[in-house]
Design a protein around this nucleic acid. Structure first.
Lengths: 236, 236
DNA sequence: CCAAAAGTGTTTTAGCTACACCCATGA
DNA sequence: TCATGGGTGTAGCTAAAACACTTTTGG
């Protein structure tokens, strides 16, 4: 058992989160950079001894983003014996001038449970943790090199999101409360990485009977104003 | 860190496996019964300090069934803080006359990674572990009461199997090497718990181009003999 | 030749795609 | 009135479902 800031954590278990956001037509995720190391990693954390796994992730993300009721989905648990490269973690601890024996447990083997989250990036204020000096949005196609197996964690999260997009459709969390059909389609396209047909997409969405139509959105441009939509109360 | 039979295991992490078999038209899973306790549980185990998570599960199942190359799929990780009821585990240790302090770690909180397996029950010779006196096939609809949250682990495994049945189709592992179309359909029906249309099912399977047709199977009954099929070498 | 079960051809249906047409909007 | 983009109608395609017909088997 290991202690950090007075809390007892379970040894050898961690979570890593792939936090998806959507801005300017781009799919992004949260990436943290550690002080003076040039090392980048997914936001993660440990599980307190008395805490549900799901709660630990929810609380950790709430601390980082300030958001409550984040949409979270567990997608895979990563347990390769060699997934923890101790030299990377050593570098991080040393850059933070942490040499004490009480933190050596962080250098040991960890099995990590992967979660992905969908959040509206406009509502977020980012808070890096004690070891990190930044917590920033990165375009999913322009990620920096990540430590350990975090690149494959991202890949698996994205694949899971693609597989589930038509089944659970929690995508309202990535958009504002109201959005145009074009914005929704753009989000689908950037997640699936393929162009969709405009008419077909609109019909499919409307036939699902999960969208509510609101007033039109006047852009000032010389063209027809699109309706705004939102998800219905009991959409799933 | 905790030791059992000279092997060092990671604290607080376990796996539980839902091993599916198919016999007499019924879907079954492996359930273990602990000595003199009346307590039933899924076959599970711990992860050695140097061992991949996937390998640990594979090795554990191989020891129990004698089978190599078992089809395994990780489906969820269970991490509720209250999922370990210590009184159940105490009962199991006491029934095995284990009171030593060195086994007390088994009473602590565990996060468990769930895997499901598909095996051909005809090829299996079952070996219960040291704490158990039996390892038996139970009809999925007639399970005994299981300890802890194992019932919900089974439910989630079954749901995952249903969701994946059309995508990965590793079902040959549940049947013999050769099988009739009716046997394959029966397996689908018992997994999905719904009747399927005979003609449609056959066409769908054949159109996938993953089955190979062999000689006919003469049953002695007064009707047309069905062909035997097997899965092609590179079926996926 | 009959009953039963297997294999396959045909029709119907549903969903998706692509194309096109009309509508709304502000320059 | 024109260019631009949004909403919807329609025809065509494909895959799946339902139905039915034919074939094979042993009594």
């Amino acid at each position: 058992m290991s202690t950090l800031n007075g809390v007892e954590y379970i040894d050898h278990i961690a979570y890593d989160s792939v936090v998806f956001g959507y801005a300017a037509g781009r799919l992004k995720i949260l990436v943290m950079e550690y002080h003076n190391t040039g090392l980048f990693a997914l936001p993660g954390g440990f599980i307190a001894m008395h805490e549900d796994l799901d709660e630990a992730v929810k609380n950790g993300l709430e601390a980082r983003t300030g958001l409550k009721d984040i949409y979270l989905e567990q997608f895979h648990t990563f347990g390769k014996a060699d997934r923890n490269k101790t030299d990377e973690m050593k570098k991080i601890l040393e850059a933070n001038e942490i040499h004490q024996k009480e933190f050596q447990w962080m250098l040991s083997r960890f099995i990590s449970v992967g979660y992905y989250a969908l959040i509206n990036h406009e509502l977020v204020t980012l808070h890096p943790d004690a070891l990190s000096d930044s917590c920033t949005w990165y375009d999913i196609n322009k990620l920096p090199k990540l430590i350990q197996d975090h690149a494959s964690i991202v890949a698996k999260a994205l694949q899971t999101l693609r597989d589930q997009i038509d089944r659970k459709l929690p995508l309202f969390a990535l958009l504002g409360e109201k959005f145009t059909m074009q914005e929704l389609q753009g989000l689908y396209e950037v997640i699936l990485d393929e162009k969709l047909h405009r008419g077909t997409f609109q019909r499919k969405m409307l036939s699902m009977d999960i969208l509510e139509r609101h007033e039109k959105k006047y852009s000032g441009a010389a063209n027809k104003a699109p309706y705004l939509y939102s998800f219905k109360k009991n959409w799933n």
